[in-house]
């Protein structure tokens, strides 16, 4: 089953375009909500091996300036997880962005981290869902390293999957010095289903 996961150049372009449109819509709504300009690069669509993913997780472990929030999403036949990685996130920048006043205690810091992640994830996931005509439901966000330990997570990945599709987007909000990577990971089975869905878009 896992050997089936390959992307043709055409399919890759299609996913990139779908994500691009979704991001455009997301950026528009984020701009209206947060009153900021969001810089968006072209999304990266790749097949990643489990080892690469483990390395990403390892890099998160122990790093004090990096935080990551993951959130599952599921729709008809498609399931995956959105992983939002904040590079050198400072809570004061984020709280300023979300207009949380005053000093924050530890719980409030984590809460705004989840809020930001949820807004960025949600805006993108819904945009992709709209184009594929799928209504995704999102689960409660989980902060890696806070709500679960990363070492356990790496161990648990073993043998559960080998390679899958990942869409990577780099969000940049210059005004607030916020830089983060959104990683959309799909399960192996979902990729097969999504390839079928986009085949309708690719037909002339």
């Amino acid at each position: 089953m896992s050997d089936d996961i390959t992307l043709s150049e055409e399919q890759r372009d299609c996913y990139q375009e779908i994500t691009n449109v979704a991001m455009g819509q997301a950026a528009d709504r984020l701009a209206r909500l947060l009153k900021v300009y969001v810089t968006l690069p072209i999304p990266n669509v790749n097949i990643i091996e489990i080892n690469e993913f483990k390395m990403t997780l390892k890099a998160l472990e122990g790093a004090t300036s990096v935080s990551a929030v993951c959130q599952g999403f599921i729709g008809t036949g498609i399931a995956g997880e959105a992983l939002l990685i904040f590079n050198d996130a400072s809570f004061s920048d984020i709280s300023e962005l979300l207009k949380y006043p005053g000093d924050l205690d530890e719980h409030e810091e984590l809460e705004i981290l989840m809020d930001v992640a949820n807004v960025l994830n949600g805006a993108c996931i819904q945009g992709i869902g709209n184009q594929l005509d799928i209504k995704f439901s999102q689960s409660h966000p989980v902060i890696l390293g806070q709500h679960c330990t990363i070492a356990e997570l790496i161990e648990e990945q073993e043998n559960r999957w080998k390679r899958t599709m990942a869409i990577e987007i780099n969000y940049n909000i210059d005004e607030h010095k916020i830089n983060c990577d959104l990683l959309l990971l799909f399960t192996e089975k979902s990729v097969v289903h999504m390839n079928r869905l986009i085949s309708f878009l690719l037909e002339d």
């Binding site: 709504r29 719980h107 409030e108 989840m114 949820n118 807004v119 805006a123």
Partner: peptide, 13 residues
């Protein structure tokens, strides 16, 4: 505005 769900969890609140 965004038409996406929001969440609160008991660990934080």
């Amino acid at each position: 505005l965004l038409n996406t769900p929001a969440f609160t969890i008991h660990e934080q609140r």
